[in-house]
């Protein structure tokens, strides 16, 4: 099963990170990441961080989704 929720790196020690989702903290290996940093959001799979979230891309996606929402609301009465 894949884990949809990204976690935030709050501490790094020898390739192990403490990662946090809404106050729940656990360990994850950072071995599969290049240059992980505290404060970055990562996708975690089976105890390993496998990817950093691309903040710029996330903003872009949300912008597109919200624009679609705003546009749809303007063009028709809410139902």
């Amino acid at each position: 099963m894949c884990l949809a929720i990204p976690s935030k790196i709050v501490k790094i020690e020898n390739n192990m990170g403490i990662i946090d989702v809404d106050g729940v903290q656990r360990q994850a290996s950072l071995l599969l990441l290049e240059d992980p940093k505290v404060g970055e959001y990562v996708i975690v799979h089976a105890g390993f961080a496998i990817k950093k979230i691309d903040e710029e891309a996330a903003m872009e996606t949300l912008k597109v989704l919200r624009e679609a929402l705003a546009f749809a609301e303007k063009s028709e009465p809410a139902g």
């Binding site: 884990l3 949809a4 929720i5 989702v21 809404d22 106050g23 729940v24 656990r26």
Partner: peptide, 12 residues
């Protein structure tokens, strides 16, 4: 609770 929700998501 948020934390409970978080753990549930983490474990599926």
């Amino acid at each position: 609770k948020n934390e409970v929700k978080g753990i549930c998501e983490l474990l599926g």
